[in-house]
Design a protein around this nucleic acid. Sequence first.
RNA 1: GGCUCGAUGGCAGAGUGGUGAUGCAGGGGACUGCAAAUCCCCGUACGUCGGUUCAAUUCCGGCUCGAGCCUCCA
Length: 458
Amino acid sequence: MQLHNTLSGRKEDFAPLNPERVTMYVCGPTVYSFAHIGNARPAVVFDVLARVLRRRYPRVDYTRNITDIDDKINTAAAKEGVAIKVITERYTDIYHEDLDALGVARPTYEPKVTEHLAHIISMVERLIAVGAAYAAEGHVLFNVTSYAGYGELSKRDRREMIAGARVEVAPYKKDPGDFVLWKPSTPDQPGWESPWGRGRPGWHIECSAMAEALLGDTIDIHGGGHDLVFPHHENERAQSTAAHDGKTFARYWLHNGFLTMDSEKMSKSVGNVLLIREILKAAPGEAVRLALLTGHYRQPLDWNDEALADARRKLDRLYGALRDAGDVAASDAKAPDAFIAALEDDINTPAALAELFELARALNKASDAAEKAALVAQIKDAGALLGLLQQNPGEWFSQSSGTASEGPSEAEIEAALAARIAAKTAKDYKEADRIRDDLKARGVLVEDSKDGQRWRRL
RNA sequence: GGCUCGAUGGCAGAGUGGUGAUGCAGGGGACUGCAAAUCCCCGUACGUCGGUUCAAUUCCGGCUCGAGCCUCCA
């Protein structure tokens, strides 16, 4: 298997440190608001990676954290006049619901920062002990000059960064690039007791501490959105390496490209944020998932209505092939080598999808029952690796477009189809066509197959 | 300003130093009462200017354009 490593800037052969236990850490959400479609991309991409790894390795410990201590959460809680727990639990549940709809499996571990305060404090103490961090005015800061490798991941020169810095440098910092590990809380802010007084952790130390607690000092794969390379992952790397006596923190760094809206970054300031749950009102979760896998994960992906409609039509074709195969009992055939090879080549989902369509065409052409059974099994096994094609074709074609869409009920459709078959039997094609046109106008496409009429929602 | 990554046909999107993936859309045909679905066939592409090479969309360089990071951010 090959994976593109941000640290080296090239594709590398992947070999886990311990083949009996592959470890993977992906930065999860800060739960203070609804998740948008951009947040869904890493969740889906690394879900696919976990599935591919699990096919080859017996145990994959995948950790995706929930950041439930953060100043944005504090702001949201203060605004509503509730405890931060009210906010974080609400949006954690929503996050789970959204990802469930996209077929994203839960990670092995889903740690929360609030459950790891002791670990975070201990890590900060160790960093001070080894001289990589220092306390100043209630804060604890990581000294970037203590780590020679600082800047390697994001390919940045510290001196240039200072020149381009847009923020004012706090006077207690030894170096302008030093970042906060622990900061003091005022009495009205959420805080936890620590050797440096009541306060709360900085953002970067959380992930380092949770990765250490659950996966150990060195992890195989660390993933996240491309925007996290700097400063978040650069800082994590510096902290963890310093705390672990120079041991490698993450062996492979993977970053997914950004999702744009009409070629522009999705952000609240631009006002083009598209929430996962808004999209799910008008489209099935599986189509959203496929749309996210249409491009290679490292490439930017432009989100628009056409991309989603395209994904739905693709699923129509794939599920159509499965439906037309009829009731053949799937054999125990597995996804073909070319499909696996595509996914093991740095998660090349577009190439893998092309293989899937080749299988669908073969299935559409097949007449032999054994051949059909093998192809159905191959398509389903391949689909499972992508997290697709696991429902019955009938369910796919009869489901509504999304949580908010409407249309005639199945009973109404069945009644209309009965009337149409009667008209057809009487060779009253004018009436049969009228019924078909009427249903189409209401969002239901009727097709005549050799097995009789069938329908699907548009 | 610094850094990173891109630029493929009507659209989306892989890939490759020399036979133009895949899906959608389009044209033709088969099938169908007509459609739809399916199958077969077809078309149009590698930003620009140079270089290397027998041969470049594929390697190298300049340019132009685009996305992202340098501040919270997937």
